[in-house]
Computed example of a mutant assay.
Amino acid sequence: MQNLGRVAIVGGGVAGLTLALALKRAGFHCSIYEKHRLTDEGSFQKRASGFTLWSYAIARLIEWGVDLRDVGIELEQTEIRNQNGELIALMPVGDASRKFGAPSYEIRRGDLLAAILAELPPETLKTDHTCSGIREHADSVELQFASGKRVQADLVIGADGIHSAVRKQVAGDVPLRYSGYSGASGVTRCTHPDLPPQTHVDVWGRGGKAGMADVGDGNIRWYLTWKGSAESPKSLDEILARLEKWYAPVHAVVSTTPKEEIIQHSYYDIAPLREWVRGNSVLLGDAAHATTPFAAMGANMAIEDAWELATAFAETRSVREALQKFENSRKKRTEEIVRHGRRMSRLTQLHSPIAAWLRDQAFSHMPEKEMEKVAVAMAAGE
């Protein structure tokens, strides 16, 4: 396809920015409309968060020219521990990733967005644009913004997250499904002797889960989850009280985080959509297939989406054909990952002490070869 016309991407998160970069590399131009303003650090998020990017997603970013040398930390291993801190499994992520020619990373979200933005023309990103909806016309799509502004486009890509305004026009009213779990996360500047370099520690508790990982520059990202109502924010003191009998390093790391830097979460996903495409509008990332964080795949799926959609545009003759090819190639896989996230939420946070003990025994006796297979599958995005 030689020309896409006026392309408008709604949302400047991982999905929107990586798609813009993939389109640029394929010779297409676009504009991104993001509701937030950039902070002084070049991010849309005032409070820091992070995630794991697996080898196959990192390979795409490198191919698109993103400079990751000073962004995040190459991940060598994931320790899985029980609530008491006993090691029950070790995933050799580094060895698995090297099979695919690119490392897996622990990375702060803001650092990744800044690295991608550095590869885009400055005029691509338009901040302080809150999209309130879209309207399809015979030969164009009108974007409507909360400010009253209107923009005409030939193609609209909704990459505006789980609360997508574009999705309502494409797929109708889609209720969010509460997972039964809430949580908190943060990034804190500290070190701990029981957190080895280039290591992600995952703590599978009883009725909750915790984790922490080195993300570089003397920072550790952490997260906690617990079973509860969707509207149950907790103070730092309440969070620390939950951790008193947990693996001690988690309590120590969380306690160094300033209260104002802690992000509270209620974890939702969405049921599979009947369609991702309507007219000349398409959904991408969490707008199309929001999942809970328990599959550790959200940002990776967004990068996959960007690759698949840009490839579809390059390999087809019309926009409609490309959009349908993209939807057909992605729906089955993303639906399975959403289901996997729900399964992992239950497995890693069992309430029954007996069930948790049986789980821990099963993983602690798993042969090394089996854990290597798990690590390879994660690195490959399988």
Score class of each variant (00 low, 15 high):
Gly27Ile: 13
Gly158Lys: 01
Ile58Lys: 03
Thr334Glu: 07
Lys35Glu: 10
Val374Thr: 10
Lys332His: 08
Pro272Asn: 00
Gly72Thr: 02
Gly148Arg: 02
Val7Asp: 10
Gln152Asn: 13
His351Arg: 07
Asp217Arg: 11
Arg320Ile: 12
Phe100Pro: 08
Gly180Thr: 09
Gln349Tyr: 08
Gly341Val: 10
Cys131Trp: 01
Glu382Phe: 06
Pro258Leu: 13
Glu119Tyr: 02
Ile157Tyr: 09
Leu273Arg: 00
Tyr56Gly: 09
Arg346Trp: 09
Glu315Ile: 12
Met91Ile: 05
Ile134Pro: 07
Ser266Arg: 06
Tyr268Met: 02
Ala57Gly: 08
Val253Phe: 00
Ala26Leu: 09
Arg81Asn: 07
Ala314Trp: 02
Phe28Asn: 02
Asn84Ala: 15
His163Pro: 10
His265Phe: 11
Val201Glu: 01
Met366Gln: 10
Val277Trp: 01
Asp217Cys: 13
Ala290Arg: 00
Tyr105Asn: 10
Leu4Glu: 09
Val338Thr: 08
Leu75Tyr: 00
Leu38Asp: 04
Trp307Pro: 04
Ile32Gly: 02
Gly172Val: 06
Ala299Thr: 03
Ala379Thr: 09
Pro103Gln: 09
Ala26Thr: 06
Asp139Ala: 09
Gln152Met: 10
Met371Val: 12
Glu261Cys: 10
Leu350His: 05
Arg242Phe: 04
Glu275Ile: 05
Leu120Pro: 02
Ala375Gly: 10
Leu117Val: 07
Thr124Ala: 05
Glu34Gln: 03
Ser266Gly: 13
Ala59Ser: 08
Asp160His: 08
Tyr223Gly: 15
Gln2Lys: 11
Ser232Glu: 15
Phe145Val: 07
Arg346Gln: 15
Ala248Pro: 13
Glu106Ser: 07
Lys126Cys: 15
Lys227Ala: 15
Val215Ser: 00
Arg346Ile: 15
Thr18Leu: 06
Leu75Asp: 01
Ile239Val: 07
Ser255Thr: 13
Glu86Ile: 03
Thr130Asn: 03
Val277Met: 05
Leu90Gly: 08
Ile134Ser: 09
Pro353Leu: 14
Phe51Ile: 04
Leu21Met: 10
Trp222Ala: 01
Leu68Ser: 13
Gly72Gln: 04
Tyr181Arg: 12
Lys259Tyr: 06
Thr78Pro: 01
Leu350Trp: 01
Gly228Ile: 03
Leu273Gly: 00
Ala296Arg: 02
Ile239Ser: 05
Gln45Lys: 12
Val203Glu: 05
Val166Ser: 10
